[in-house]
Amino acid sequence: MSGGSKDQLIHRAAIIEGHVRAVKRLFQEDRPILEILTQLSAVRSSLNRLQHVLFEEYVETLLLDLDTPEARSAAVADIRAAMETLP
């Protein structure tokens, strides 16, 4: 993982952390359920985006090392396993 990419992923994780804190605060403040649901949707969306960005980087990294048929088969298996984690 490159430094810039790692920084971007850490930034996205910090955004998610902020969304989760906001959900907790909304509960503490007895805010309307619709407001909480909206914030939870933001959490889910941010998590999904982080997961997709990380998956893309993972696939790109795997594809750089495909110099043999065995490496290609292993990469396909790894990509399939990683895809199972996606929403």
Rank of each mutant, 00 (worst) to 15 (best):
G4A: 08
G4L: 04
G4N: 07
G4Y: 00
S5C: 00
K6E: 06
K6Y: 07
D7V: 03
D7E: 12
Q8V: 03
Q8T: 04
Q8L: 12
L9E: 02
L9S: 01
L9A: 02
L9K: 00
I10E: 02
I10K: 00
H11A: 12
H11V: 04
H11I: 03
R12L: 07
R12S: 09
R12V: 01
A13C: 08
A13S: 11
A13R: 09
A14P: 03
A14S: 14
A14R: 13
A14G: 12
E17A: 14
E17P: 02
E17Y: 12
E17G: 14
E17R: 14
E17T: 11
E17S: 14
G18L: 05
G18P: 04
H19M: 08
H19C: 09
V20R: 04
V20Y: 05
V20N: 02
R21N: 10
R21Q: 06
R21D: 10
A22E: 12
A22S: 09
A22W: 04
A22F: 01
V23K: 04
V23Q: 02
K24V: 15
L26C: 03
L26K: 13
L26I: 04
L26Q: 12
F27T: 04
Q28L: 14
Q28N: 11
E29N: 12
D30M: 07
D30G: 13
R31M: 13
R31K: 13
R31V: 08
R31I: 03
P32W: 05
P32D: 05
P32V: 05
P32M: 08
P32N: 08
I33Y: 07
I33G: 03
I33T: 10
I33F: 08
I33D: 10
L34T: 10
E35G: 00
E35R: 04
E35F: 06
E35H: 03
E35K: 05
I36H: 10
I36M: 08
I36P: 05
I36E: 06
L37H: 09
L37A: 10
L37M: 10
L37W: 03
L37F: 09
L37S: 10
L37P: 02
T38H: 13
T38P: 00
T38C: 04
Q39L: 07
L40W: 00
L40G: 09
L40R: 01
L40P: 02
S41N: 15
S41H: 15
S41T: 14
A42I: 05
A42G: 13
A42S: 15
A42T: 13
V43A: 09
V43D: 06
R44P: 03
R44K: 15
R44W: 05
R44C: 05
R44L: 12
S45P: 00
S45E: 14
S45A: 15
S45T: 13
S45H: 06
S45L: 08
S45C: 07
S45D: 14
S46C: 06
L47G: 01
